[in-house]
Simulated assay, not measured.
Amino acid sequence: MKATRTGYEDLTAENVTITITPRPVTITVEDSWKYFDAVDPEFKGAADDLIKADDLGTIIQKNQYG
C-alpha cells in the first residue's frame, strides 16, 4: 500500500488495516416534469455535507423505468 498527499512525504507499508467510516451525504434534486413521450428533462440538484466539493465525483440521474 502507498498513501500520498501533496506536501507530505510518501508513506508505504506492507501490512496495514485501514478503516473508513462512512459519512452521510444529502442529495437534493429539484422537482421537474414532462409531457408523455417527451424527452426526459435535465435534473439539477446539489450534494450537501461533503468535505470537498468533488468528493462524490460525477453524479448521474437515471430514469428508473428505462
Rank of each mutant, 00 (worst) to 15 (best):
M1H: 13
M1A: 13
M1F: 10
A3N: 14
T4V: 14
T4A: 13
R5L: 09
R5M: 09
T6D: 15
G7H: 11
G7N: 06
G7D: 08
G7T: 09
Y8I: 08
Y8R: 00
Y8Q: 03
Y8P: 00
E9D: 13
L11I: 12
L11T: 13
T12N: 07
T12K: 03
E14S: 08
E14A: 05
N15F: 10
N15Y: 13
N15P: 02
V16H: 12
T17H: 11
T17W: 01
T17P: 00
T19V: 02
T19Y: 00
T21Q: 05
T21W: 04
P22E: 09
P22I: 00
P22L: 01
P22T: 00
R23L: 10
R23V: 01
P24F: 00
P24S: 03
P24R: 00
V25R: 07
V25Y: 11
T26Y: 08
S32Y: 10
S32P: 03
S32H: 04
W33N: 05
W33G: 02
W33I: 09
W33D: 03
K34M: 09
K34E: 10
K34S: 11
K34D: 06
Y35M: 11
Y35V: 04
F36D: 10
F36Y: 14
D37W: 08
D37R: 06
A38K: 12
A38E: 15
V39Q: 09
D40A: 01
P41G: 00
P41V: 02
E42Y: 04
E42G: 04
E42T: 02
F43K: 06
F43E: 08
F43V: 03
K44S: 13
G45Y: 08
G45W: 05
G45P: 00
A46D: 06
A47Q: 03
A47V: 06
D48K: 09
D49L: 03
D49S: 10
D49T: 07
D49W: 14
K52T: 02
K52G: 03
K52L: 15
K52S: 15
A53H: 10
A53G: 05
D54W: 12
D54V: 00
D55L: 02
L56V: 03
L56N: 15
G57H: 03
G57I: 04
G57N: 04
T58C: 09
T58P: 02
T58Q: 14
I59S: 12
I59D: 13
I59V: 15
I59K: 08
I60K: 15
Q61V: 08
Q61E: 14
K62G: 04
K62M: 11
Q64N: 15
Y65E: 07
Y65T: 04
G66A: 09
